Simulated assay, not measured.
Amino acid sequence: MRLDVHHTLHETGDTLKSVYFCNSGMISILNVFPDGKSVEVGLVGKEGFVGLPLIAGFRTASNRAISQIKATAFRMDSQVLLSHLELCTSLTRQLQQCSQIAAMEMGQIAACNRLHEVHERLARWLLMCADRVDSNSLTLTQEFLGQMLGTRRSSVTVAAGMLQKAGIINYSRGDVKILDRAQLEITACECYGIMRRQAEEWRSQAREFRSTAHIS
């Protein structure tokens, strides 16, 4: 199915009737507060899926999931997924691994939003987006970036201006183009490297486990 920009997959408290496996684009996982404000705590691209609570036997969502960029995804009825999990241990294990990586990233992003400067968080976020969409060109408004980073629009304007002045990105009317990825990685806080290394290590361990299990 096709997902337009800002298409809502589920809201906090919704019953999870479907799960989504991204083929392209990106889904943002947001914590929503009683006053309506929201902050991003996770990103899902083609490496993951939307509907993690179902893996643990839960039926409702604890957050909002929306498409940030035009996306395509496979949608599966939650009951169909659950029936397959009972029959396929390898699928269950792989989705559990996705859940663990997502939990690790959520914890790191929460710490990042509390401890690091806006321009560092913006650099980290742009890198995470580029990784998931396999592109250095992104369409993102300042207002939306502010929601994702949990900060004011004016702060995003200043941070984006710093990166643009340094020749790292070009930002014009909601279009962001990464010009110097190496420098963007240097500018980003250490959270990007921590998350990337941990995810790669776990995926390597998972491949080794599957290889060993296949041989035995």
Score class of each variant (00 low, 15 high):
73 A>Y: 05
58 F>D: 11
119 H>T: 14
211 S>H: 09
130 A>N: 04
177 K>N: 08
54 L>D: 09
159 A>V: 04
136 N>P: 08
189 C>W: 00
86 E>Q: 13
138 L>T: 08
172 S>T: 11
192 Y>Q: 04
205 Q>K: 10
168 I>H: 01
196 R>C: 00
123 A>P: 07
30 L>P: 03
200 E>W: 06
107 G>C: 06
128 M>R: 14
176 V>L: 06
161 G>P: 07
150 G>K: 07
4 D>C: 08
52 L>Q: 13
102 A>W: 06
128 M>N: 08
117 E>A: 15
147 Q>C: 09
57 G>C: 08
89 T>A: 14
73 A>D: 04
101 I>L: 10
178 I>G: 00
111 A>Q: 09
145 L>E: 03
212 T>K: 11
179 L>N: 07
134 D>R: 10
106 M>I: 04
186 I>S: 03
139 T>G: 02
28 S>Y: 02
13 G>A: 07
29 I>W: 02
91 L>P: 07
129 C>F: 05
151 T>Q: 02
181 R>P: 00
21 F>S: 05
201 E>N: 12
127 L>N: 06
87 L>K: 15
26 M>Q: 05
108 Q>T: 14
140 L>F: 05
162 M>W: 06
56 A>Y: 12
81 L>M: 07
119 H>L: 01
201 E>R: 14
170 N>W: 00
99 S>C: 13
38 S>M: 10
6 H>Q: 15
163 L>Y: 05
125 W>S: 03
79 Q>M: 11
189 C>S: 15
165 K>S: 08
100 Q>H: 12
64 R>Y: 08
61 A>V: 11
62 S>I: 10
119 H>A: 10
66 I>T: 12
97 Q>L: 15
195 M>D: 04
55 I>W: 06
73 A>S: 14
74 F>D: 13
162 M>F: 08
54 L>G: 10
11 E>Q: 11
80 V>R: 09
208 E>H: 10
215 I>T: 13
32 V>A: 01
109 I>K: 10
158 V>I: 14
73 A>T: 13
122 L>F: 02
